[in-house]
Amino acid sequence: MVIQESDLSNIERLRWQCRRGMLELDVLLEAFLEQHYGDLPPRLKRLFVQLLEFPDPVIHAWCVGGEPPEDEEFLQLISTIRQTKVA
């Protein structure tokens, strides 16, 4: 997928992309978008937009399933996502 600059700032679109097939991801990704996304450097914003294109079970395994990604950059993003307050 080619990510445009405008994709990074289209929060409404991202909010709908956070609607997933798994409740865990709905809750975590939506909360992350509200709490942390705005403060991310463009590099990580871009990575988040990319993350949303991954299949649900992959995002689930990375964020909730205790199987973190090997890629360093994604790892950094996922650890921020995991710090989101949802409880």
């Binding site: 997933r20 097939g21 798994m22 649900d56």
Partner: peptide, 12 residues
Amino acid sequence: SKVFPTRSHTVA
């Protein structure tokens, strides 16, 4: 579909 097809709830 209101979401991308492979994000339907069946995925859970």
